[in-house]
Design a protein around this nucleic acid. Sequence first.
DNA 1: GTGGCCCGTCGATACGCTTCGACGGCTGCT
DNA 2: AGCAGCCGTCGAAGCGTATCGACGGGCCAC
Lengths: 340, 340
Amino acid sequence: MAAFTSRDVARLAGVSQSTVSYVMSGRRPISADTRKRVQAAIDQLTYQPNAGARALASQRTQVVGLVVPFGTAGDTTALLPFIETIAGCARAEDHDVLLVTDNEGTAALTRLAGRSLCDAIVLMNIAAADARLPVAAASRVPVILIGIPDDPQGLPCVDLDYPEAARLSVAEVVAAGHDRVVVLGWSAEEIARGANYVGRFERAAVEAAAAAGVEHLAVSPVEVSREGARAAVAEALRIGGPRPALLVPASSAVPWVVQALTERGVLPGRDVTVVGLCTDAVAMTTVPPVTNVSTEPRDVSARAMQILFRHLERGREGPAGGVELVAPRLTRRETTLAAP
Amino acid sequence: MAAFTSRDVARLAGVSQSTVSYVMSGRRPISADTRKRVQAAIDQLTYQPNAGARALASQRTQVVGLVVPFGTAGDTTALLPFIETIAGCARAEDHDVLLVTDNEGTAALTRLAGRSLCDAIVLMNIAAADARLPVAAASRVPVILIGIPDDPQGLPCVDLDYPEAARLSVAEVVAAGHDRVVVLGWSAEEIARGANYVGRFERAAVEAAAAAGVEHLAVSPVEVSREGARAAVAEALRIGGPRPALLVPASSAVPWVVQALTERGVLPGRDVTVVGLCTDAVAMTTVPPVTNVSTEPRDVSARAMQILFRHLERGREGPAGGVELVAPRLTRRETTLAAP
DNA sequence: GTGGCCCGTCGATACGCTTCGACGGCTGCT
DNA sequence: AGCAGCCGTCGAAGCGTATCGACGGGCCAC
């Protein structure tokens, strides 16, 4: 119970303490016989190395810092799959996850790096001009961004390919035979926070619509609430023409919009096409299930962790930066009108 | 950049390294003059103590391990407020949170404790007969449970007062003039997992109904899905009599039940009373907003952390165990029928 | 004037591990 | 037979902090 040390293991196995270390790390050849004896001693004592001592000696903590946006609005329900996936990937590489809320802003970063609490940092919820970026770029530990700022400052980024998501959405609308599309925007708060994907999506939507020869209209901002959705839907139907098509890129607004339409007796899939940008899980819970472009939080996080560990293994070398886009996927469900 | 040590600070301030340590910890009196010089040096170098070294020397990590249920079903949307609150409370006491998924089961516990990764552990999603409990009880670090097992084995527990929640719900139904109440149960999966609150709620509901002289009926299990809710609602309306009252203790089923009722043209608040056991946030998103007994995840977590830190401060002494119940609160919204 | 005491500081040590250099013995080559 | 070289192991030196005992210098009390 009193926590055995590698010295105890060494004594029991009749070897030196350094040999125990080499058995565990495999960094030097050890004879089969010795290895067996040491392993037996380890098992017998249920020895586990002390993380602090190991970190001190090796300069590696086997911990990944994860800075998550709690206070802010940005679709907090979509957060769990990110966290879960990141934790899973970390464990797969024998790392743990230190969870930090970003209420502290920049201080969290300096603390994580300054105290050597972790070997790497995952930063979520990146704003276009994120105040944490300069700090992150100057950080002693590698940082990876989930989300894309205006200037990544050499930091690696991973995010959904929002332009592609816009293109897929528009293509779906076009395939359904619409000649105009109404994009319901994000909430004022999310726009104010300056997430980059807002602009990335919108520009691509405009371009895709122009390329396909369909008219592009916008309703923005759209507050994420019943009332916000009602207002946005009213406006969208007003300008949407006789056979409206609605694009809802704000994940958390999707259920509200579907509900607001239904309330009005305008049934998605019968009277109006709705394409949402949200997880498949969310898409399947609306009534009726909404045609969606998936935001793939699991893919995005897994990709980020993969890049992170590749970077950790390679050490300081190798090209750090780079923007990695994860391809979205459109699933037609019950809210796409049949082409006329 | 190269990470300063307390020795660097000492040199710059013209004192010994131990003095720097005492300035930071305040464990010995330091003259105002010295303190000022040391503090200036700390600021100038932006010195931060190395977490590993500190942990090694002091036997304290300033980290709280949090074992969260990811794989399991148990209402994963309700998870975030827990995590967020726990992280916030930890930071308030200058601790960080190490997030561990409980896929690893018992191994996660032994790792956290065995490697001295944290000073204390928060265990969520406790089953009635939880396999992790013996390990937790024998653990070198204090453990607190969120949820109540059949036998806490001396471990402190915090949870919502489910019996009280049942009483509040029944009282609401009684106040609305119903003479029978239908309890829609949990999902088969949740029951199988053996969460204790299922039984605690149900027993109290039966007792409260008996005490109030209203008839108690049950529909169980209720799968958390559109179809599950439809089936449960059909059954509930069949047995519920002319003026039905529905209790929905499974948080995540509440929106589905409300929706299933609405689909059938049985409007909550007009044709039927619905009382849900869920967070206020969820209650406010249904249409119409559902009368609810709040599950108060923030209160529960905050209480747990408070107990944890009190325990940490007191050291090994003090009565460890004890079951702490957090009082739920009923909020009447729009799904309570007016008394006849 | 002197003894005792407390305040403030220092030096040394321990925490448990990783890692480097060293070294003995054995193999294989000449 | 002798030597080079490699394999497997050991000892020791840190890693950066907390903490304990020691100690010098004031201060107060007698």
